[in-house]
């Protein structure tokens, strides 16, 4: 759940840099959660399932705990939790909620066509 928590400072910058390196097909995802609440856990597991199913090998997921990095909430304009940010491929999207509505998650990730 907190796998990629190591990059804290300048996480956004590094994230942006890595984003620039990747090709257009690569999905750069970032999930903001609030501690180990059931909703956070649920969102993560739901998202992982979807990614494995539709984006295997094509995505990078970073999970950020807002309690640990409150300043990121401002930088990334986070209001709701959990929030998934899709920086790439464009358009920029915020997918909020526990990712239980698969259709909507796919729509948010612009994966509906593939289905």
């Amino acid at each position: 759940m907190k796998e990629k928590k190591t990059k804290i400072k300048n996480a956004t910058k590094e994230f942006d840099l890595t984003v620039a390196d990747k090709g257009p097909d690569k999905y750069m995802l970032r999930l903001f959660i609030t501690g180990a609440t059931s909703r956070s856990v649920q969102a993560l597991s739901n998202l992982k399932k979807i990614c494995e199913e539709y984006l295997e090998g094509k995505y990078e997921l970073e999970v950020v705990d807002l309690y640990q990095n409150p300043s990121l909430a401002k930088e990334e304009q986070i209001i709701a939790a959990p929030t998934l940010i899709k920086k790439l491929p464009l358009p920029f999207r915020r997918i909020i909620g526990d990712m239980s509505d698969k259709e909507k998650v796919l729509k948010g990730l612009d994966l509906k066509r593939i289905v």
């Binding site: 969102a43 209001i79 709701a80 939790a81 358009p91 915020r94 997918i95 990712m99 509505d101 948010g108």
Partner: peptide, 13 residues
């Protein structure tokens, strides 16, 4: 930009 996909709260805020 926003897509709602289930339960959430405003904890971010």
């Amino acid at each position: 930009e926003i897509e709602e996909t289930g339960e959430y709260n405003l904890e971010g805020l």
